[in-house]
Structures are given as C-alpha cells and as structure tokens.
Design a binder for these strands. Structure first.
Length: 646
RNA sequence: GCUAGCGUAGCUCAACGGUAGAGCACCUGAUUUGUAAUCAGGUGGUUGAGGGUUCGAUUCCCUCCGCUAGCUCCA
C-alpha cells in the first residue's frame, strides 16, 4: 500500500488517500454525482486529467463538465474523437492539430490533411455518427509519455507528418505526451476526460473550411472540421437555437427581405447599393451624427475621392498599403489613386495656411467614402466591403491638449454608440509594436494618456501589448450585440507618422515652430458595417427614430379608405413617417405583412368605430395591442418614441 | 489570395443529358373583410457569363464573374 497523502478540498476539509489515487477515484470517494459530472481536476491550481495519479499532498478542486475549464476539456476530447472518426472514414488522413476554441459559434476543430479524398458537407453526419459509436464504446483516454526518439518513431509509424513537425518544435526537456483512446493515438498535452463516454451526447459536427498548416498562407492548406460540444444535449440544442437566431438576423438576408441594400456582381464585388429604405436609415444616422459633431466641437469637412499618387507617396500609404489600394487612374498623364483613407486630405487642409497655437485643437470630421482593395475571400455582406464611408475625424492638438482631447473623444464615442442602443463595450488598448516610427517619449506619453483616459472611464479594458500600428498606439472599442457577439467599430489612434511626413507645425506662444499631435478617430467605423451590425442587433426591426416607416394605417374595408389616407397624410404633415394600406386584404393579412414581415413598429386599424370617433386601434409590434387612441394621441405617441430614440 | 462548396423567375426551392416547374411576391378580377396568410386567373427564366464535349447541355468538362464557410489579411 502506498503512503497516504493529504488532499485538501475547496471547502478546506482534508482527506487522506493512498498516493497514486487518481483524480477520478478521489471524485468517487467524495460523491457519485460529483464523479459523474467530473471531467478534470485542478491540482494546486493546474488543471489536469482525472486519470492522472496524485503523487503528493495537494490542494484540489474537481473540474465539472459545465464549467468553463470543464467544457474546454470536453471539447478538446471531442476533437480527438472526431479525428478518430475522420481517420476511420479516411484511413490515410494526416492530422495536424485539434484544439478547443473560445468562440460562441464553435467549440473545437481539427485540422486534417485529407490528401486527394476531401470531405464534403454531406460527410459530416457520418463523422458525427462514428463519433457517437466511439463515445458509446467508452474507450479510456490513456496518457503516455515518450522520449523524443520513441515519439518520433510512433508518429512516423502512423504517417503523421504534421505531428513530426510539431514534435520537432517541442523544446528539449519538455515532456512529450500522447493520448490513446482505443486504436487512436494523438500527440497531445491533454488534459482529457477519463474516457470517451464522458463526452456524452451534447456534441455536433458543424462545418468544414480550409486552414493553412502553421497558419501560414505559403504552406499547405488543410481541411478544418468544426464541431461543438456541451455539457449535455439540452445545451447543444440551445446552441443550435442560437445559430438559428443568428441566421434569422443575418443582415444579408434582411437586406433582401426588407429591401434595404444590395450588392451585385454587375457592380463589382464589395460595392454596396443603398436602397431607399436602407438609405433612409443611413440618412437618419448621418443626420444624428452631424448634429452631435457640431454640438461636440467638431467642424465638418469634405474631400475628394481621388488624388495624385504623390499625395499617397508622401503619406506613406503607397509604400505600406499598396496591395490594398485600387490601381491608379491616368489623368492627363498623371497618376491618380482612389483614396483608401481621408487623413492626407485633412492634413492638407491643415497645411493650407499657417496655424497658430491659439487655434488648436482642430477637430475635423468627415463622412468620407474610401476604397480599399480587400481580398476577394474576405468580402462579407456589409461587414467587409471595398467601398465604404468612414465616419472619420482628425484632431490636430497642441502637446498640452493631448490628455484632455483623448478623454473627450472617448466620452464622445460612448455617447454616440449608446444612442444606437448599444450598452456593452469591450475596450482594447494597443501599445507600441517592435517596428515603429516616432520618438519613444511620444509613444510613452501617448500610451499613458490613453491608459489614464480608459481608467477614468471606469470601464474594463484589455491591453494588447505590441498590438499598435507602426505609427501610433490606439484604443479600439467593440460593441456587443443582443446575441453577445462583439463588433469592432470605434477606434482612436495616435499618429506620429503623418505630422512628420507632411512636416506639420504650428506657431507656438514663443513664436517658434512646434509639431502638433495628430489623432485619428472613427466612431461607427464604416457606415456600411455599422448598418450591418445595427440590422443584426435589431433583427431588422429598427427603433422608432430610425424606422423608414414608423406606422401603417390599415383600413378594414373600402369605406374606411379615405379616412385612413387622410389620417396618414395628417401624420406625415407632422413630420412622421406613416403610410396608409387601403388594399382589399383582410386586416389579419395586413397586420402580418406590415408588423411581422416589414417589421414596422406600429399599425393602426381604421374601421367603423374609429371612423365614427376619429380614432385608431393601435398595435405595437413588440408590446401588442395598445388600445384606441385619438389621431392626435397616436401622433404624440410616435413623436415621443422617436425623440426617446427607443 | 488560398481550400472546399454553391450560382435555375424578385425570394425559397424542384427538374440533373431529351427543347424548365411549384409556392410566395408581382399584375388583373372577384371578395368589403376587425388584428400573424380570402379566392381565381395571369405575367415572369438565352438556368451567372464565355468556351468545350455531345445529335442534343440547366445537367458533363474548362475559364471567368459572383456568392458562402473558414484560413490569410484588415491603415
């Protein structure tokens, strides 16, 4: 019998068990329910597999399958089982790697080289079925540690070329471990569930894609198979429901259904047509944006879509972003380029005359349409396009104004985003990368100013050390939509490059020349993209202030048509967006069409009773029947909701 | 750009070597309707484009364009 060891449980109680007891045996000794839910064990803070024997006194915590770490173990183990299933289906398949991932959409994947026998979407159910068989056999996951030579020999024997590459990258002295489940063996650090049965029934094989070996576009393209696994079938079903919900809110779908916008091959990929309804929403967004900017101390500027190549040479864009700029236009023998950014123009406005310290800061904003040659494969609906309008602004500030201007911009960003119904944000500070321009002292000061501004906001933020652009540090703001997905929209960036390249200066109080700090910022980012996010967030049902049609007056029969038209016209005269539907349809069909297909916020029925009393029977898309309102009350209600931006 | 897949009427889909069909939408007519689909009739497609194989191509092959899922990229 082994020496007893002392095991401290999370509640502080201590158990004595023989050394060599496995985590699973320990869990069983605590309780059967716990043992059933266990997928791993945290030993002195480190998560490991339940099959590993405990060697000495330790503090432990059982990792349950529905915890974040538990799910990771579950998903990672499911990835192994999936690879096992794929190898049964395609015996020559070579594995690369198959981790669990943190993404609301996917749980795990495995990158596999299938040679000349690729898998198709139709093969996924078969993979899932084979996984079910392997889970049903409840094969134990057995950990093996091998020295480098044996490890290499084992993988060579299995024809796992990619694993050989991985082994060669494992530093000398590190443990090389494998996990076996039945005949399947995989190079893997672990941890894994004790046996395949523990994966349970809450898993699915979801999709196929390509992925480069070692994430390098110059290397072989492997097949990536995505799957998901949850603690139980119910959670898996909920996830499927989430996927359905996301599909229903897809802005590309809603763009067609609600006639908001289109992109079509006839124009060229990644170019957007805003239809009247989408155009109206954009008009409202822009109207609000201009109003807030003017109130917020900005001046509005405009700049052209093209400029001489020289400008882009001076700015450095041609040097750094040539591949993503559209090819030049020949204008009377001179080379002109479509603008990928607005900043050089704003810089030129700055340079158009001598600037005094008394006039700074300048805050110049523009809804500037830019063109970027994005990779064809990167294009996606409105989210990633080749022509889009940035809600751009550039600030030229005196050194002593830097901190206060940064703070001001951050407040402004949140103010604007909140107006669109977003309330959750993720802030990210990106600092100096290895390759940078400008002076170290400027970088440090700027990073400090950004950090302090973030701290003052009292919103949590992440630091991406070294993640800044070569020309300056930045803060990015992501918004969370109603499905919990985050979208990067706002950005605030310092620029130490352009002021230098264009030799910007102002006359300071001593009559000397001083270089201003330059800040770029965008709030919505791209109007196209923001519109896409807005469509998905609201599921196409825009809030009253943005809705292209705010209400429809429905006549019950022909004798109410004139009344319905008159009421609609009256409300339109009051500045509301109301139309009458006097078609020969039943009321039910009209309600269905306007409220649920067109997603109009309100309908108002005009029948005999309403005609007699000059009122309307109002129904709200969200809250249902509101009752009878006079025409004046109805108009007032619409106005109130519009003003509330609700 | 890369890998895989897809492209048939405005939308959703059928036909898969033998000159293209349904539902919805749209138009017309009937119905006069009270809160999630009234009925009938009709219009509508050189099957993304071009080339090839074939007696014959929406169907098979090639190129291009576009789209989708990822990967790479994203000032």
């Amino acid at each position: 019998m082994n020496e007893p060891i002392k095991i401290t449980l999370p509640d502080g109680s201590v158990r004595e068990l023989p050394a060599g007891t496995t985590g699973l045996e320990l869990a069983e000794s605590i309780g059967r329910g716990l043992a059933r839910a266990a997928v791993g064990i945290r030993v002195d803070g480190v998560v490991q597999g339940l099959q590993i024997p405990l060697g000495s006194d330790c503090r432990i915590e059982i990792v349950k399958r529905d915890s974040e770490e538990g799910l990771e173990i579950l998903r990672h183990s499911a990835a192994h089982v999936m690879a096992d299933a794929v190898k049964r289906l395609r015996p020559g398949a070579k594995l690369w790697k198959g981790p669990a991932i943190h993404d609301p959409r996917y749980g795990f994947y495995y990158d596999i080289d299938l040679g000349d026998r690729p898998l198709a979407q139709e093969d996924l159910p078969e993979i899932e079925r084979l996984m079910g068989e392997i889970v049903g056999k409840d094969l134990p996951f057995v950990r093996e540690e091998l020295d480098r030579d044996r490890a290499t020999a084992l993988m060579r024997a299995h024809g796992e070329d990619y694993k050989l590459a991985t082994i060669s990258k494992i530093p000398a002295g590190d443990t090389i471990s494998f996990y076996r489940s039945g005949d399947f063996v995989d190079l893997c650090k672990g941890p894994h569930v004790p046996s395949t049965g523990r994966i349970g029934k809450g898993f699915a094989v979801l999709s196929l894609a390509g992925a480069y070996f070692e994430n390098d576009a110059s290397k072989a393209m492997l097949t990536r198979i995505y799957g998901h696994a949850f603690a139980d079938e119910k959670a898996m079903a909920q996830h499927r429901h989430w996927l359905d919900e996301a599909k229903k809110r897809d802005h590309r779908r809603l763009g067609v259904d609600l006639d908001l916008f289109s992109t079509m091959g006839e124009l060229g990929a990644g170019l957007v047509l805003w239809h009247p309804k989408g155009g109206f929403v954009r008009h409202k967004i822009e109207e609000f944006w201009r109003q807030e900017h003017l109130a917020g101390g900005y001046d509005i500027v405009y700049s052209p879509h093209i400029a001489r190549a020289d400008l882009w040479r001076t700015s450095g864009h041609l040097e750094f972003y040539k591949d993503s700029m559209f090819k030049g236009l020949d204008v009377d023998g001179a080379d002109y380029l479509l603008k990928p950014m607005n900043c050089p123009f704003h810089v030129q406005i700055y340079k158009s005359r001598r600037r005094s310290y008394r006039d700074l800061p300048f805050r110049w904003a523009e809804l500037g349409t830019v063109y970027r040659y994005e990779d064809a494969g990167a294009l996606h609906g409105l989210m990633r396009v080749r022509g889009f309008t940035q809600d751009d602004a550039h600030l030229f500030v005196r050194p002593d104004q830097l901190e206060s201007e940064i703070e001001r911009v951050l407040h402004f960003i949140l103010h604007i985003l909140r107006a669109f119904g977003f309330s959750e944000f993720e802030m990210n500070l990106s600092t100096r990368p290895a390759k940078y321009v400008g002076h170290l002292a400027d970088w440090e000061r700027a990073e400090n100013a950004l950090r302090i501004a973030l701290e003052k906001l009292a919103l949590p933020f992440q630091v991406d050390a070294g993640g800044g652009a070569f020309y300056g540090p930045k803060i990015d703001v992501k918004i969370k939509d109603c499905l919990g997905r985050s979208w990067q929209c706002s950005t605030l960036q310092l620029d130490f490059n352009l002021p230098e390249r264009f030799d910007l200066e102002f006359v300071d109080a001593q009559g000397g020349r001083t270089r201003p700090y330059m800040l770029h910022r965008a709030l919505l980012g791209s109007l196209e993209r923001f519109f896409g996010v807005l469509i998905e967030h609201h599921g196409g049902a825009f809030p009253m202030w943005l809705a292209p049609v705010q209400a429809v007056v429905l006549s019950v029969g022909d004798r109410h048509a004139e009344f319905a038209r008159r009421v609609a016209a009256e409300l339109v005269e009051q500045g509301l967006r109301v139309v009458a539907d006097v078609s020969a349809e039943k009321v039910g069909a009209k309600v269905r069409h306007h409220l649920f297909e067109e997603k109009v916020p309100m309908v108002a029925v005009a029948g005999d009773a309403e005609l007699a009393s000059g009122s309307l029977a109002v129904r709200d898309r969200k809250s249902g029947d509101i009752g009878t309102l006079t025409v004046a009350e109805f108009g007032q209600r619409l106005r109130t909701l519009t003003a509330a931006r609700g």
